[in-house]
Structures are given as structure tokens and as C-alpha cells.
Amino acid sequence: MRVVVDFDLCESNAVCMGIAPEIFEVRDDDFLYVLDENPPESMRAKLEESVQRCPKQAISIAED
């Protein structure tokens, strides 16, 4: 499972960080950083919630 963020869409509102701080971090430069691009399977539920709650539909999960 791989985290894919479309940075052209992302507007750094940090919603994903609120749900999965282990994976997403918005820093003081106002950019989103993906801390763990290949999170463990145990993070799937939180990652899926982030996909649903991202107001910009910027997050997707790639299975590879």
C-alpha cells in the first residue's frame, strides 16, 4: 500500500494530519510532507479515512 498525494490539488489544510499524523505532516512552511509513503497495513483504516476527508480529493492509495 502506497500513499499518493496530488500536490497540485493539496492546499495544506492538514485534515489528513489530524487523522494520521504518523503519515502526514503540515510544517510551518505550510507544505504537506508525507512521512511514510509505504505505511503498514495496520494504518489502512486511518489512511482510507484521510482519503474520504481530504477536502481536495488529493489523496489516493496505490496497491503495489
Partner: peptide, 12 residues
């Protein structure tokens, strides 16, 4: 205002 990280973290 232009502090998204703070708002999300303080929500907790």
C-alpha cells in the same frame, strides 16, 4: 488564519 497545523492539532 493561515495556521492549519495548529487548528488541527489543538482540536484534540
Amino acid at each position: 488564519m493561515n495556521r492549519p497545523r495548529h487548528v488541527i492539532q489543538l482540536r484534540g
